[in-house]
């Protein structure tokens, strides 16, 4: 049995703001019967862009109903632009948390809100992420843009977490590899952001970052061609490396040093790095 919080149970057993809204001027619909959950969100938005009323209809489990109910409470009184800044995390927090396998219910709430506001603005009903992305999970109709959004907003680290939050990959599993690739790409972006050079860098910092970039960015490429690389020393902006394996006998090792090693280190560590062979 799920371990739902008291707030989830309260909203499920006595949901707030249920049913169609007669004077709604914004409607957002997400999910479908085949997916196992669906939410129709009704908003009444004033001319100056304040959400005055919100109601919902939901097909789904207790956490889907609770997410919808709490969302309608949260958005009333909000300006449209502020409402657009709400994330699924805000919904989860308002419920005091959700089991991780149920996170997609909060994502559905956020998507319905976005869809409703788009509807009010006269934009196409499909959400931003839906429209722009490439379809990854065919079973649940999840795009890469939706997956990336979930990864970024919730700091997701594993494929299972992506499934928990977006449902992608939760049925036939054919897209799991593709999700893993998207995730790997996102995590790399994240790690590169971390090692963007700060204004002043100590020698130790420079060495650590160089080591990390060599390990993560450069070595895998060389290893793929039967070579390898070792960081020998860092002296100011001079980085001394030694090429190993097939690279050490390669005639184009000078090219490798300039075009791969130096270029990559300049990109990720500091723009004026000089690479030399030890």
């Amino acid at each position: 049995m799920w371990n739902y919080t008291q707030t989830v149970n309260d909203h499920f057993l006595r949901p707030h703001n249920v049913g169609p809204l007669k004077d709604a001027n914004a409607i957002g619909e997400v999910g479908s019967l085949s997916c196992g959950d669906a939410l129709k969100l009704y908003l009444k938005i004033s001319d100056d862009g304040v959400i005055e009323k919100a109601t919902f209809e939901t097909f789904g489990c207790a956490s889907a109903i609770a997410s919808s109910s709490v969302l309608t409470d949260m958005v009333v009184g909000m300006k449209v632009d502020d409402a657009l800044k709400l994330t699924n995390k805000d919904i989860t927090n308002a419920l005091g948390g959700l089991p991780k396998q149920k996170m997609h219910c909060s994502v559905m709430g956020q998507e319905a809100l976005e869809a409703a506001i788009r509807n009010w603005k006269g934009e196409p009903a499909t959400s931003h992420a839906h429209e722009e992305g490439k379809l990854v999970c065919k079973c649940f109709g999840v795009t890469d843009a939706q997956i990336i959004q979930a990864i970024r907003e919730n700091n997701l680290k594993t494929v299972e977490e992506v499934t928990d939050y977006t449902k992608a990959g939760g049925a036939c599993g054919q897209c799991l590899n593709e999700i893993a690739e998207i995730l790997a790409h996102e995590l790399k972006q994240e790690s590169l952001k971390e090692i963007q050079p700060k204004k002043r860098m100590t020698n130790v910092q420079r060495m650590q970052k160089a080591l990390k970039v060599i390990d993560e960015e450069i070595r895998p490429k060389l290893v793929a061609d039967g070579g390898d690389i070792e960081l020998v020393d860092v002296d100011g902006k001079r980085v001394l490396v030694s090429l190993r394996g097939r690279c050490s006998q390669c005639k184009s090792s000078e090219v490798t040093l300039r075009d791969l090693v130096e270029k990559t280190l300049r990109e990720h560590v500091e723009p004026d790095i000089i690479v030399e062979e030890a």
């Binding site: 799920w2 499920f12 057993l13 196992g36 959950d37 097909f59 789904g60 489990c61 207790a62 889907a64 109903i65 089991p99 396998q101 149920k102 649940f140 499934t163 449902k167 939760g170 049925a171």
Partner: peptide, 27 residues
């Protein structure tokens, strides 16, 4: 949806089970 049915039944003291996706944690 089955899970929602089960939880409401449980409130009434009725124990059953469901083949719905949500009850198992699978999708």
């Amino acid at each position: 949806e089955g899970e929602a049915i089960l939880l409401l039944l449980d409130r009434l003291g009725i124990a059953a089970s469901s083949g719905s996706a949500c009850t198992s944690g699978s999708l």
